[in-house]
Nucleic acid binder design. Sequence first.
RNA 1: GAGCACGUAGUUCAAUCGGUAGAGCGCCAGUUUGUGGUUCUGGUUGUUGUGGGUUCAAGUCCCAUCGUGCUCCCCA
Length: 416
Amino acid sequence: MLQAVRGTKDLLPDVINDWHYIEEIFRKVTKKFNYKELRTPIFEYTEVFSRGVGEGTDIVNKEMYTFQDKGENSLTLRPEMTASLVRAVIQNNLTAQETVARLWYFGPFFRYERPQKGRQRQFHQFGAECLSSANPESDVEILLLADNLIKELGIKDYKLLLNSLGNKSSILSYKKELTSFLKSEFENLSEDSKRRLDQNPLRVLDSKDEKDLKVTQNAPKLIDFLDEESKEHFKFVTNSLDHLNINYEINHKLVRGLDYYSHTVFEFQSNYLGSQDSFGGGGRYNELFEELGGKHTPAVGFAFGVERLLMILESQKLINKNNNNLDFYIVCFGKEYFSYVIEISTLLQKNGYSVNYDISRKSFKSQLKDSDKLKANFSVIIGENEVISNQFVVKNMISGEQMKIKLENFSKFVKF
RNA sequence: GAGCACGUAGUUCAAUCGGUAGAGCGCCAGUUUGUGGUUCUGGUUGUUGUGGGUUCAAGUCCCAUCGUGCUCCCCA
């Protein structure tokens, strides 16, 4: 049997309501903050991501869907949004007219990984980016927007982890120091971390391996390398969060896996997800625009994993499954009366009601059963008696009450 | 990319040591030939993921493959 590609899923009618619900909240919250949606192509020239996300990252090294098109261009299905978004902003000069651009997005992304709970090869992200301001006010705004979204969804029992990486020069000097420290402890590191040391030494910090945890206890701390300006920036952020009553936990080992971050980085974690416990994350990226050939544009943003959000909502039972009600079901027996079915259903549809009727010539009883199963609010009954008397039976399926209505009075009835 | 577990009816799950594939739910029909939901009665469903092997005999054991779950890696 033909089946969907490994790590991809069909979103069938029984879950699509959940998606509409959550998308509605994305729109509602971003609107309150005056963020504008943008959509970019699902693939880009590979360079956008190799330069944007960073050559040293796992995403670029082993997780991208990269292929050649017939014009022999190397193209890649987007593994994340920030690089695409920055490319689009530069190309369309979106920051020229406004001093600050506030943008949000929602859509599918692709990474070649081993599928697991909360991890697919095609997955969806919702995210927002605040462009052009280097000030911590924009970090706060982004965190506040994320917080609003989480609260609007009703998600509970989550943690916001926060850290500052400082500016590029403090990261570089820290990296140097950390690398030489880790090299001195090389033999005590896990196999994975020995490999990481060359590629991305910062990642050794958030390893779960016990051997690594032992070593990193005594490792130099990132916070000691921040210059005054970076410290002040971070202090502004934490002070504001305190003031806003947004709970957070400072974790000096939080570094995140993408090359472009500096200053504030953060991650949202939930206990409902199992091993893949982070359902959102983000941070500041001041250098990315220049990296992709644009003018200097400091920025900060976040992304949420939509499948993971839905998993949390489901385990918290925050999703109401039965919002699929039907307004009218038309029961008709006698195929010669089908024109009445169409006439009445058209009338109802014109007034905005949803209508179902039988097309498989089921028995009278089965049609009523159908009506019940589809949770129709009303059934309209059409049969010989009704046609002869020009009085159609309308049955309230909740109370069981019935009334007779003439065809020409239907529009009045329908408007209540 | 590495390790472990699992895959049986539409669905959730049984099937003892290798010995006739079964139940609940659902679905269909009937319960005075024009009235649903609740009862009651009857009926329906399978290439045991796929392909090979061992055996008198395989859902069960072995190999391969596809898929899923968990852990690592990584990330949302």
